[in-house]
């Protein structure tokens, strides 16, 4: 995004201007609080959520530093979506504290809601608007002036390769196109912190590369991206910080090198952390394959 709104000065002081390389991250990461200059992007304490008998999020404590590209990984049902929903104020926790940029999400929504951008998962958009109308709608709801919204919307649609479909109703978009328009809607007001739930799901390789470019440029300016994903290679190549979740708890978090530890790749470290390495599919499915009778 070439156009920088006023929020940007505020952000520049709270985070390093350049995205640190993986090697140099190790230094400050020794102190878990990250950059001592400003408050962490997200601070979670004792976060709990139960759906009936099912404990979806089981007392999470987590501090995520500002200005980083942060990956939240975990197997299906680990509680990533639930956590992100509670952190962004879309789902009320049973108990616990969430602070974004030092502001309590539930007590100080004015400070929080203008600072964050959200791409939730499993929630719809206003699909009976065209892509451009949707951006115009959300931008104006965010209180941006109309001209500015239209300008930014045009640029975002261009960059995300949606210009050709900008006048098509979102209900006629494909899965990947919806992700992209959702991403555009989340970026429109130039938030300090971006929460993306599985932003690369259903996105083709070319668009994924585009999204990576946009997000990398965005974090380079000092903003924070927190996204959930199942694709370890992607997380490994994009993120400088990861948090691993399983069964509603944080199994590990920190700079990527630290989480990876001695394992050859993040994938191996992940499988070890969530305890799935020995759960091979070999023994129980011995009837499967070979083209034999039934």
């Amino acid at each position: 995004m070439a156009n920088e709104p006023e929020q940007n000065e505020e952000r520049a002081e709270s985070a390093p201007p350049e995205r640190a390389s993986a090697a140099s991250v190790d230094g400050p990461a020794a102190a878990p609080d990250g950059a001592a200059a400003g408050p962490p992007a997200v601070r979670i304490q004792g976060l709990w959520k139960k759906f009936g008998e099912q404990i979806a999020v089981n007392g999470i404590d987590l501090t995520l530093p500002a200005g980083r590209f942060i990956g939240l990984v975990g197997p299906n049902g680990a509680g990533k979506t639930t956590t992100l929903s509670m952190v962004t104020g879309l789902l009320r926790p049973d108990s616990g504290l969430v602070e974004i940029g030092g502001h309590d999400v539930w007590r100080d929504p004015v400070a929080v809601k203008s600072r964050i951008g959200v791409l939730p998962e499993g929630l719809r958009l206003f699909e009976r608007l065209s892509g451009r109308e949707l951006l115009g709608y959300i931008g104006r709801l965010r209180g941006l002036p109309g001209d500015e919204v239209d300008k930014r919307a045009g640029q975002l649609l261009d960059v995300l390769d949606l210009s050709g479909s900008q006048h098509k109703l979102v209900v006629d978009y494909s899965t990947g196109m919806r992700k992209k328009i959702g991403l555009a809607a989340a970026l429109l007001h130039n938030p300090e912190i971006l929460f993306l739930d599985e932003p690369f799901e259903g996105v083709d390789p070319v668009s994924a590369q585009t999204i990576r470019g946009v997000l990398e440029r965005y974090t380079a300016s000092g903003a924070t991206v927190i996204f959930s994903s199942h694709v370890m290679e992607l997380v490994e190549s994009l993120c400088d910080w990861v948090a691993v979740m399983a069964a509603g708890r944080i199994r590990a978090d920190g700079p990527i090198a630290q989480v990876r530890g001695a394992a050859p790749s993040l994938q191996d470290a992940f499988l070890e952390l969530v305890g799935a390495n020995d759960r091979g599919a070999g023994q129980s499915l011995d009837w499967l394959g070979g083209g034999g009778a039934r």
Partner: peptide, 9 residues
């Protein structure tokens, strides 16, 4: 569920 867009603003 598009209400989340309203809720977040």
């Amino acid at each position: 569920s598009a209400f989340w867009m309203v809720a977040s603003t």
